[in-house]
Amino acid sequence: MSDPVTGSSGSASALLELSKLEVAYGGIQAVKGIDLHVDKGELVCLIGANGAGKTTTLKGICGLQPVKRGTIRYDGKDITGRPAFELVRNGLAMVPEGRGVFGALTIEENLAMGAYVRDDRAAIATDIERIFHLFPRLKERRRQTAGTLSGGEQQMLAMGRALLSKPRLLLLDEPSMGLAPLMVQKVFETVMTVSQEGVTILLIEQNAKLALEVSNRGYVMESGAITLAGDAKTLLHDPAVRAAYLGESAA
């Protein structure tokens, strides 16, 4: 069964599948019945302008915002409306918007907090070392409090912390938000590294160009609905996308 819209075939291998998802946010219907799926091992991005409903979609998925209608399936099971803490225990982790690191805790303590759902102490210690290997910058500052890190470093920490829960699916909400251009580049490299580690990722981004460059597939969201979907490279060259999000004229 081939999906004409998304350009990807079959939902048998889908790790995350949204169907006709509707989420209201503060009385406004921010997500108006969207279909989206992320297959195992994929890096999929959901792009769109500010206020398109991307973050609300993510909040709906991880139980931070009540779902109005539609279903969310994760690993074949219906998880609609399940609370966030339960999802983390089943391998669905998220990095919230604005990173949400524990500012007064040290980097090491932050990472340890990421492993809260696990009880295999020895393995946690080696995994923390692995994260330090992935992000050497964090290792240098391991005993510093997270609040003293730069925005980019905090984003790395947030991602490293999420990885410590051993997720199979990682939801990233605007990892490039508020970062200097050089740091944005760095963060996207990190996203790719994490993806290559075998973690399935749904990336929510305003920075359409970079997001599409690193992703396998992409969805374009506009006022609560998916307007375009397909192969990331194709979208990157789609005139409509270029005009709307990459700052080029349609002509």
Binding site: G103, M113, Y116
Partner: peptide
Amino acid sequence: RAWEAIREDEIAARAMGIN
């Protein structure tokens, strides 16, 4: 540790798998 996380940032605490 869970209380510590909640005190610091409740949303992040939930994202850590804390009820």
